[in-house]
Design a protein around this nucleic acid. Structure first.
Lengths: 200, 200
DNA sequence: GTCTATACCTTGATAGAC
DNA sequence: GTCTATCAAGGTATAGAC
């Protein structure tokens, strides 16, 4: 299911199993507390088996983080530039992005919290994806301000606030918590519209 | 200055220096990536020097996390139950809490992100402080709803959203970033009032 | 492509002198 | 209370057989 979160590849090649295993382990205990033995055993391999497919533990993190960011960018961009009024699109962005952080909370945690542990060059690569996400949101807000649907004093601050709401879902969500992914969508769409001074 | 963030003790006893050192190291690289040697050398001690004052690396994390949570609780409770209308008090809570996450972003990161790495008993202890913070905010929102100042459909969800906005500051803030702590306060007060449908 | 075995290093923590 | 020296455990990564 993590696989689905990332791209929708043919499931359970060994690489896919390793990435799923790493997502679970990194989300559970963090990058540095996770051992290559953890990853290997979760994927049903011996400790050495990891190194056939990845050069290092950090290479696993990079692959996972990159895919996660790409999935997030696709999701946000798709909703932000799709059909409908800016109001409708913001609602879709907030609903989809918040829900994604819950449904795929393992990958989402890796994306949000393990980012600082990437090697500098890998961090730079991923950073451009992050900037693309922010930009997609800012552009959508500009549209809504131009059309008169949104009442926003500072687009940059407001875009960050919208993202903060969704991103923080990855911190508090886990299966078994009171809130469910399908209720999170409408809630966060509504919160977003409030921040924009828009009528639902 | 981290010291000031925590309680306002007489500065630079060895324990204080160790906690400051640990805050910097944990915030920079995370609990597990930080070595006891890192902490010791930042505090100007030999590797063994740490163990005169703390039983283990986790004990350092616990002391730091506990103090940080206590400072956060004092801040929120003080603003939430102080003088003024619910609207004024929410503005003060948001301004103060968001600013705290920037000004003391090292301790704040430890509070928000290293919490899962506490031992179970220590996690439970700290969890009660977290619940107290949430409850203080929820009670304030109930007051504002009762007085007719806030227009909120779900107090629980809205309280979480307010906290999410402030907490996420610790993720993106660092010195040198565009936004400054003194501008963050008014911005987040205003965002909070919007979420509550209140007039500034 | 996977395994077993292992090299090499860093880590958390302790012992014992001062 | 701080140091130097050190240990035991566990970490990443590799070698070489199958």
């Amino acid at each position: 299911m993590t696989t689905g979160a990332l791209a929708g590849q043919a499931a359970s090649s060994t690489v896919e199993r390793l990435l799923d295993a790493a997502a679970g382990a990194f989300a559970d205990r963090g990058f540095h507390a996770t051992t290559t033995r953890d990853i290997a055993s979760r994927a049903g391999l011996s400790p050495a088996g990891v190194y056939v497919h990845f050069d290092s533990k950090e290479a696993v993190l990079y692959a996972l983080s990159r895919r996660g960011h790409e999935a997030a960018l696709d999701l946000v961009r798709g909703s932000a530039t799709g059909p409908g009024t800016p109001t409708e699109r913001v609602a879709r962005v907030m609903s989809g992005f918040a829900t994604w952080h819950a449904e795929h909370y393992e990958v989402a945690r890796v994306v949000q919290y393990e980012f600082p542990h990437l090697q500098p060059e890998h961090r730079d690569e991923v950073l451009t994806l992050r900037k693309d996400i922010d930009e997609a949101v800012r552009e959508l807000l500009e549209e809504g301000v131009a059309s008169g649907e949104f009442e926003v004093t500072d687009v940059r601050e407001t875009a960050l606030a919208l993202m903060s709401l969704c991103i923080d879902v990855a911190r508090w969500y886990s299966p078994g918590v009171r809130r469910t992914p399908d209720r999170i969508g409408p809630t966060y769409a509504s919160l977003g519209l409030r921040l924009l001074g828009a009528r639902a």
